[in-house]
Design a protein around this nucleic acid. Structure first.
Lengths: 215, 215
DNA sequence: AGCATAATTTTCCTATAGGAAAAAAGTCAA
DNA sequence: TTGACTTTTTTCCTATAGGAAAATTATGCT
């Protein structure tokens, strides 16, 4: 079988529905990384402990490396393996930045709280910062705990906050007190004083998000 | 060769210096994931399109899957491939939380700023939240821009802040104004008014940190 | 226990991974 | 252009991946 045909056969599409790459596209990516660093096949082969021919074949999508060899190669190219599986487009755009003026943020309001989404015009960011006003003053205002995979940070700016975390005693937070916790645990905020409490909340969505999801 | 010996041979250590797993440990992990979801080998085989025998062998470290098959298996187990390469210990401990009272935070002080590290007793968290007081009032107080891979969020709590980002015009931020940006860009903060500015900063370290590093 | 059924492991076999070395294809200086 | 050298591709060959199905080992069930 002529080489050219194998290539064509592998090259039907550069990726699939999910975030993964077929071996042909993966090869292109690996070659690109190698070129960027100005390394030759022989150099990478030496660094990774693989045969030169092997590296060449992988880069052209003629071969699909087994798990352990794959790790070796990634090591030789000095790339973190998980990066190879993160498609380019899903990462935060480098050099991007966004300013959100007080009061100009995307507004989200209910009886229980007001949330201003900050930096909302940036997508794929790791953190979701919000400015919030907690109108709820009683846990019974909520029907259930909030929970979402990831981590959450909160600081009280004004007022007194009562943080309820499922299975724990409520915690009182005053001005400039803060809390950091696993947001996978059920949680709720209520204002403790007479006035509504102003807070700043930053969520980080876990990369392991799919872990606990059951479809 | 008896099966038992192959096992022993593969089981010399459960991981290596870097964050990667050998095929034996990887297998254990995969099996664990499968069990957690209550799936049988046959089910996973069907989901992933691999042969039952293959899945069995992989789980016992008798076989090392090629790249494409590996993706299929991960798909069948409904796990993100990159998660498999993130060692257990490096993730944020579930159910953990930490409260930092105002003024009780880990203090870090220089002529130019004061930083209180919040939630400092938690390790491996995705975000690093800080409360800061910017004493610097002139860009020339700094010898160079600060830059670190990842993303940064900042909100002004008190005073007026001037944010300098390398290659851009300085930005003025008033109380409750905020900014979100790629912290890989050089950046600096100086107080714009007479008084020192109080801010809250949250950094998220990029998982793609090694991307730009050249050794 | 003994039988039935489900889950896992082994066997057996072919296709592919992957190394060593030869061949081919650049690259560049004289 | 020719020759010396570097980089990449092909060939050839053995060890392993990986599927189908048989064999074995749970896990009930009456």
């Amino acid at each position: 079988m002529p080489i050219a045909e194998q290539k064509k056969q592998a090259a039907n599409g550069s990726g699939n529905e999910s975030g993964t790459l077929d071996r042909y596209s993966l090869g292109e990516r690996l070659r690109q990384i190698r070129k960027e660093n100005g390394w030759t096949l022989v150099e990478v082969a030496k660094r990774s402990g693989l045969a030169t021919s092997t590296v060449s074949k992988v880069e052209r999508g003629l071969m699909s490396l087994a798990y352990d060899r794959f790790m070796q190669l990634a090591d030789g190219l000095e790339v973190d393996v998980s990066e190879l599986f993160t498609p380019e487009g899903e990462s935060f755009a480098p050099e991007s930045f966004a300013i959100t003026r007080a009061g100009e943020a995307g507004h989200h309001e209910t009886d229980l709280y007001v949330y201003d989404m900050l930096g909302a015009d940036l997508s794929h960011k790791q953190m979701v910062p919000m400015f919030g006003i907690i109108r709820a003053h009683d846990v019974r205002d909520f029907s259930e705990f909030v929970k979402h995979p990831g981590e959450e940070f909160l600081m009280v700016l004004e007022g007194e906050l009562e943080v309820h975390i499922e299975g724990r005693e409520p915690v009182q937070l005053g001005v400039h007190d803060s809390i950091y916790f696993d947001s996978g645990m059920g949680h709720l905020y209520v204002s403790a004083g007479k006035k509504d409490t102003k807070i700043i909340v930053v969520c980080a969505h876990s990369s392991a998000a799919r872990n606990n999801v059951q479809t």
